[in-house]
Amino acid sequence: MHIAVILKQVPDLVEEVEVDSQGTDIDRDSVKWKLNEFDDHALEQAVLLKESSGAEVTAVALAADGVDQLLYAAVARGVDRAIRVTTASARTDAPAAAAALAGVLADMGVDLVLTGVQAVDDLHGQLAPILATRLGWPHVSVVSRVSLEGTEAEVTQEYSGGRMATLEVDLPAVLGVQAAPRPPRYVPISRLRQVMASAELGSAAAAAAAPALGSTVTRLAAPPQGQGAQMLEGRPEAVAEQIVALLRERGLVEA
């Protein structure tokens, strides 16, 4: 059983995300990048499957600044090996990533691909369904639990309102992971340093070119201002008094 987990970096939204001078993309040089949180859960799910079933796990990411660090961290978390995929295009959108990865994954002979269900910059669609459709494999997204039974995966898919279903999927397949059954594990920095000193990252070159998107971004900007919250200012005690007064005025707490 060979599992590939696809990782990518996204802007850390805790920091400012600025728009570039053309006004059509983020300023990629000023952004602080981090592992897509859903990919983090996909990685945890992959390592849990390795531990429970002895599957072999390969972490895969498109080559970019900072990606090596992310792949070393995946090795420190427990994957067997990590591969960066080089492409001719600088694009990282899901259709471009799927085109680059499909051939590489097929050559690797993987049985199961896990990746995050979505990313905050997936303007042109999410990776799991695009990759699976390119490969001609079944796919399920918004998955919160995966177990392996022979040549099948049993998965939990989540819907709105707290509803869930259990689906059985023949392998090979692609799953878009929303959450692993447990929070992603923490890796001590000493372990990461050890991995960076001893592990070797593999690499592969993508054969396919990025497909045309058929869609052009004409503007990227903050949402329109004008509406929104009335801001309460002052020291915490003063703001607390204003909030309690608002609640009492409306009868939302006992006077």
């Binding site: 899901a94 259709p95 799927a98 269900v117 979505q118 997936d122 303007l123 042109h124 669609g125 999410q126 369904p129 695009i130 699976a132 459709t133 390119r134 796919h139 399920v140 997204s141 918004v142 898919q157 989540e158 819907y159 709105s160 878009g176 998107l213 058929g214 869609s215």
Partner: peptide, 23 residues
């Protein structure tokens, strides 16, 4: 843009060669 939308919008677009715009 629901669980079904996450499965189907980009998947059906890829299968038919159409552009997809999300969110």
């Amino acid at each position: 843009y629901t669980s079904a939308g996450l499965d189907l919008a980009a998947g059906a677009a890829t299968a038919t060669g159409l552009p997809v715009v999300a969110y």
